[in-house]
């Protein structure tokens, strides 16, 4: 038996865009994912069952749920984790989700995340950068007015997702909004959702997200703190490093 099982609760529509929102810098992906679930009224369609995950369940109205679930409507599959993924299980978890998404005939995969900047509180506007699994996906991002993350390192689930998709020739993008490293950043999540809307046409009310920004920051403190611990475990700060390419 495989170490990771994805258990489906509903039929999955083909040709959906598969999105990933995992705890990372500024919790950009999780905040964006949570807002998508709420605004689009996405339904839980599948969940990850694995001994690799910590012995933890999420209780909702007294019933147990996996910490790693897939929500969906007819156009979107959204994989979201409520807890940070430990360094040693990022590869198998992401591989299992990509294999599952491919099996469900997802037409494209996009991970939503952040890229930390210093002096974030002084930033007047937040840019979103993209990296792609293929030259065609980069072209698409450029056509939609999104800057390309040309050179540098990317660390975390979104990095593994992009590499695996490139290996498997799956069209994929990682969208990274400039954000705080250590603090939940709903503004950055709003920016990444705007870019997602540009690429996929999936639009949600950003104003609502910004209005409850302070409540989100207050509520997300504990998840952010846990995420900080995992970020140091995966050496996230390498994203600040200047690369020495052996071309």
């Amino acid at each position: 038996m495989s170490e990771i099982t994805i258990i489906e609760k509903r039929n999955i529509a083909p040709d959906a865009t598969m999105l990933f929102g995992f705890p990372d810098v500024g919790l950009v992906g999780v905040i964006a994912a949570s807002h998508l679930i709420e605004e689009l009224n996405l339904e839980e369609v599948a969940y990850v069952d694995s001994k690799l995950l910590p012995p933890l369940i999420v209780l909702h109205e007294g019933l147990p749920h996996s910490s790693l679930r897939v929500f969906a409507n007819n156009n979107i599959l959204l994989a979201v984790s409520e807890i940070p993924i430990a360094a040693d299980i990022i590869y198998p978890i992401i591989q299992a989700l990509i294999d599952w998404g491919k099996n469900k005939k997802a037409k494209m995969m996009i991970s939503l995340s952040g890229i930390p900047i210093q002096e974030r509180q002084d930033a007047k506007e937040l840019k979103v950068f993209a990296a792609g699994s293929t030259p065609e996906m980069l072209k698409l991002a450029k056509e939609k007015g999104i800057d390309i993350l040309g050179e540098g390192y990317m660390v975390g689930p979104q990095a593994v997702m992009l590499q695996k998709c490139a290996n498997m020739k799956i069209p994929a993008l990682t969208l990274l909004a400039q954000c705080f490293y250590n603090y939940p950043d709903p503004e950055a999540a709003a920016e990444v959702l705007k870019s997602l809307a540009n690429i996929t046409g999936v639009k949600v009310d950003i104003k609502a997200l910004l209005e409850k920004g302070e409540e989100i920051r207050l509520k997300a403190r504990d998840v952010m703190k846990r995420t900080q611990q995992e970020l140091s475990g995966i050496k996230k700060a390498r994203e600040y490093d200047i690369p020495l390419y052996v071309s």
């Binding site: 250590n182 603090y183 920051r217």
Partner: peptide, 23 residues
């Protein structure tokens, strides 16, 4: 009380403590 998220940075001239204080 609630404990806020915080961070400490040491620069050549000063120490900067930042604290997230929503609401």
């Amino acid at each position: 009380t609630m404990e806020p998220l915080k961070d400490v940075t040491v620069t050549p001239k000063e120490v900067i403590v930042t604290v997230d204080l929503p609401l």
